[in-house]
């Protein structure tokens, strides 16, 4: 699924990395615990999270994630956006809560990190 499709399904706004709209997202994961993200997420996947701090971008950088989407209308501050820009990690924000975001994406056919088979 392309980033731009996720943008549409979630009614999301791309905060940074709009030029990567065509990027392919293989799977997704929803978590507010970065250790879990580091432990279970596969590279090239989308992280949905309610956390907005620098560690989210750091975690995405370490795990080679494809993009991060903040849920429930959360918007990161300038510092976070700048770090994401420098690491080439697209950030987006959706007004939907986590449960609704996961539900819609799953229904539209995006896989979770444990189901995905390479």
């Amino acid at each position: 699924m392309k980033l731009k499709e996720i943008e549409k399904i979630l009614g999301a706004e791309i905060i940074t990395g709009a030029e990567l709209r065509e990027k392919n997202i293989e799977m997704a994961c929803g978590s507010d615990l970065m250790s879990d993200v580091l432990s279970f997420m596969k590279s090239e996947s989308l992280l949905l999270t309610g956390l907005t701090n620098l560690q989210v971008v750091r975690t995405a950088e370490m795990s080679d994630l494809a993009a991060v989407c903040f849920v429930r209308g959360k918007k990161p501050d300038r510092e976070i956006i700048e770090m994401a820009e420098s690491k080439n990690i697209p950030l987006m924000t959706t007004p939907l809560p986590m449960f609704e975001s996961c539900g819609r994406l799953y229904q539209e056919g995006l896989s979770g990190c444990s189901e995905y088979k390479r």
């Binding site: 994961c29 929803g30 978590s31 279970f40 609704e100 539900g103 994406l105 799953y106 979770g112 990190c113």
Partner: peptide, 10 residues
């Protein structure tokens, strides 16, 4: 994980 379980509940 959360994403799949929520997807199925949804």
């Amino acid at each position: 994980p959360t994403f799949e379980l929520v997807g199925k509940l949804y």
